[in-house]
Amino acid sequence: MKKFLTTLVFFIFFIVNAKANQLSESPFIPDNVLNDFKSLSKEHKVNVCFKSFDPFIDKINEDLPMKIQGYNSKMDNENKVKGTRAMDVFREFASTTNYAFISENFELQEFLFDKLFEWANDKALTKTKVCYTNIENRFILKECEGSWKDPKGQDPAPTHDSSRTLEVIMGLNYLYDFYFIDYKKDDLRHKVINEWIKPFHKRIKYVKEFTYFGNSAGWFFPNLSIKHSQNKKYKTLVKKLIKGSDKLLLKDGSIKDRTTRGNRALWYHHSALGEAFIIMEIAKAANVKLPKNYEKKLLKAVELFHDAYLDHSVIEPWAKKKYNSHASNGKQDFRSDFNSTSHGSAWFHILQYRYPDHRTSKFIKDEMYPRAASLKSDQTLGISLGCIYNSLAN
């Protein structure tokens, strides 16, 4: 009996300690935000995020390829790259998954879970060249080194093939952890899915310090998520993420190595804002205090985006530095608007929730359509942060 009680106490301690290591239910969303969202009616959430939504099942049924191969350094040759349908399939799968669970469409949930199982059983995307490792101080494998040897960026860059593959796989991983982990818990399909996804974790680049935006916050997002799912402590990683992000957000509203990207400066500035806002939410979820001027600099960067979105010449003082890019000559290649992009767009909605009276919050609210892509999913995380924060903001 004494041995049994000792074992029971140890087990309870382990469970409590494991949950404490998680810090929050999701590493990306504070518990109070998630709980408030869950308390909203299904009708309200569907009306805000998925009005007249029609799942594109045929796109999902195109299935994931075995590999992505062929990107050049500049990534301007997508029409020649093998397996690029993976991103389109993932985007549709993510949007439909968010819809299925928010609308409580059980038939659709089963279809999506079984689709994950099919991809796992087929070992989709496992043939993409491995370029990164989670081993400390190794980072990029030797056979993948050397992008941007051509000043015009037309040289092969297998690191882009690898990173695109990992974006899709980890996006599916985030969706699985958020929605499917408790779905039919005893179903044997879970085992196959986990045996497919988890080996990809070894391909995730090891992180030490946060020094650049892009690649899911310099690979910090997947590293945080993996530790969270394994019930390992990760508060130190969050602190490093916040410290590095604070250094990259500059006092003049620009973002280091993003606002200076020539004709793509507005896009890179936008996508960095997407990560910077998620980082703020990660800090709140982990109960890590933000640096004194973090939010002030973040809002300054928002205003720079807003003004440059309306008048491209506003960003020219930074864009003309042409960091890894071509000259803009006052014209930005943004390729999207507030309604058509889901990449890095969670900030549109987090801004409205956190700072409802800010002029850019009001501008985005007026400009955004009910069918905006950013309400359906997030291309980085898969999980629709846009829906969660917009449902609460409005």
Rank of each mutant, 00 (worst) to 15 (best):
L249I: 00
T236G: 09
L266Q: 06
W219P: 08
L248S: 04
L224R: 10
N231S: 14
N263P: 01
L248Y: 02
V207W: 03
S271R: 12
L248G: 03
K239C: 06
H270A: 11
L241Y: 02
K243C: 00
F210P: 01
A217V: 06
F220W: 07
K256G: 00
Q230I: 01
D252T: 04
W267S: 14
T259I: 05
R258E: 15
A272H: 01
K235C: 01
T236A: 14
W219C: 07
L250H: 01
Q230R: 14
S229N: 13
G253Y: 02
L273H: 09
D257T: 14
G218M: 05
K251F: 09
S271L: 13
R203Q: 13
G214A: 05
W219S: 11
D257V: 11
S254P: 02
K205S: 12
Q230M: 12
V238T: 07
D252E: 08
L250T: 06
L237I: 08
I226L: 11
Y212N: 11
F221N: 04
W267P: 00
T236L: 11
Q230C: 04
G214S: 04
D252M: 04
T211E: 15
K256V: 00
S245Q: 05
G253L: 05
G214I: 02
N223E: 14
R264D: 11
S216M: 15
K202L: 15
H228M: 03
V238I: 12
G262W: 06
T260K: 12
L266R: 09
Y234L: 06
R261Q: 13
R203T: 03
I226R: 07
N263Y: 13
L241K: 01
N215T: 07
L249K: 00
L273N: 08
L266Y: 06
L249T: 00
L241P: 04
F210E: 03
N215R: 08
G218A: 10
K240P: 03
K202A: 15
H269G: 09
K235W: 01
S216R: 15
N231K: 09
K205Q: 14
A265F: 04
I255D: 09
R258V: 08
W267V: 07
L250K: 13
F210A: 03
S225V: 04
K251M: 10
K251L: 11
W267F: 13
S229H: 10
K256W: 00
K227C: 04
K233C: 01
W219A: 09
K240Q: 13
K205C: 12
A265I: 05
L250M: 14
F221D: 07
V238Y: 02
N215D: 10
T259M: 06
I226K: 07
H269Q: 14
Y234R: 10
K247L: 14
G214H: 05
F210K: 10
K256D: 05
L266I: 05
S254D: 02
L249H: 01
L266S: 05
V238Q: 03
G253E: 06
F220Q: 06
V207M: 04
S271H: 14
K251A: 14
L237N: 09
L237A: 08
R203A: 06
K240E: 14
K239H: 08
T260E: 15
W219D: 12
T211K: 15
K233I: 03
P222V: 12
T259Y: 08
K247V: 10
H269N: 13
F210Y: 11
F220K: 08
D252A: 05
F220G: 07
L224T: 10
G218C: 12
G214W: 01
N215E: 10
F210D: 02
L237V: 02
S245C: 06
